[in-house]
Write a protein that binds this DNA or RNA. Structure first.
Lengths: 219, 219
DNA sequence: TAAAAAGTTTAGACGAGTCTAAAAAATTAT
DNA sequence: ATAATTTTTTAGACTCGTCTAAACTTTTTA
């Protein structure tokens, strides 16, 4: 059984390692968790003792099979709760993250099973991120950042990256971008990477490079 | 802002003091919280410093106005979550307590407001206990333990006391007692306090004194 | 009403999680 | 390839919530 803090570290390491595909440095974890490197060192020793990560002094940590499983379970809970908040309680997609950060730590497999059923076994959360199934399997199709779409075609919004800032989500709502929106790429500015798009064939807007990196669309 | 532990102590003190109407001794709190008296002494000093209780050495604690408000807010959350689990997720009434003990600590006034609305502003939880409104007001009609009903009339089940044991709830389900059930009192045994009742005009059973003390009915 | 019992508090310790400051290792720059 | 810089770890300390053992206060009993 993991403590709340251990769960948060494990989840951060999972995300920083891109789902376990690369190793993660102490300072990266410290940044992500808003703690000091010394605290991270202490914690990775504990997670390593529990076989959830492997830790090599001065060279960072790698997540183990079991660590991945545990992390995916937490992420599953987080995304199911976000889905609940938006679909059932009418939260806005920019209001759910902090609450789900708390709810994801509730310990009750039965609760999650029943919540999943209540929500009709959703496959993605309100930001388009896939919800791991109860075995930790993620079903995702191909998706690429808007800024990397070649040429001037029309694409569909599949997901948006959230990080910390709900203000990005508010911005997207304001300009009319949502999961499922159709974006026609009209023009790309070489000098700053900004893109002109037409949203749902109605509204023309410019989005910055920064923004277009965080809008994931059909390839 | 209270810690999880402080919230649990405050809630225990609220319940032990019958909603603030009497003072509570250190040992009673220790029993209720399954800790040692020494730990209670430490904690009541902290809650007292926060003006949630008044503490007089060797003479126990009394809950303050603010303490009552905070305790009622936690109880409100607990009972709303229990209602959610039963009404929306199809939990059984004997499965909800432990999960609600966790959920009651989630910090988000917006969540509770929306949950309340989603549940259609329920006035009682699955065990018949009143849900304080957002101002901490409790709307309860008169209710008395089954064992104290005078004579042999027919009464309606309004609530059941839960304490720790879900086995009492399982027992009640098994014999057919639920919130709203009609109980006709057929006979009372002097020697052991047991009562013979007819449930919903269908099923005759004997219930022990112990059980009849924890079934609350219309007067 | 004095002695015994019961209940409560204090003192000191411990684990979890965090921090700062200093030491050690790795990286980079000259 | 050695010096300077950056990163990481260690050491020691602090808070929170807990404990045991001992001291103290209140209540009960004889």
């Amino acid at each position: 059984m993991l403590s709340l803090t251990e769960e948060n570290y494990l989840k951060a390491i999972y995300h920083l390692s891109d789902g376990g595909s690369k190793s993660v440095l102490t300072n990266e974890v410290a940044d992500a968790m808003s703690t000091k490197p010394a605290s991270v060192t202490d914690m990775v020793k504990k997670l390593s003792a529990k076989k959830l990560i492997t830790y090599e002094k001065y060279y960072g940590v790698t997540i183990t099979k079991q660590g991945k499983t545990d992390a995916l379970n937490i992420i599953r809970k987080h995304r199911l709760w976000e889905t609940f908040l938006v679909q059932k309680l009418n939260f806005h997609w920019d209001q759910v993250h902090e609450v789900a950060e708390q709810l994801e730590h509730i310990q009750s497999p039965l609760l999650i099973e029943k919540l999943d059923e209540f929500l009709n076994f959703p496959v993605a959360d309100p930001h388009g991120h896939p919800i791991p199934d109860k075995n930790g399997k993620i079903h995702t199709g191909q998706q690429i950042p808007l800024c990397e779409v070649p040429g001037k075609k029309t694409v569909t919004v599949l997901a948006v990256n959230v990080k910390e800032s709900s203000s990005f989500l508010q911005y997207l709502s304001k300009i009319g971008v949502y999961i499922g929106a159709k974006l026609a790429i009209l023009d790309k500015a070489e000098f700053d990477g900004s893109i002109e798009i037409m949203i749902d064939g109605k509204k023309k807007v410019f989005v910055s490079k920064e923004a277009s990196q965080n809008i994931l669309v059909t390839p």
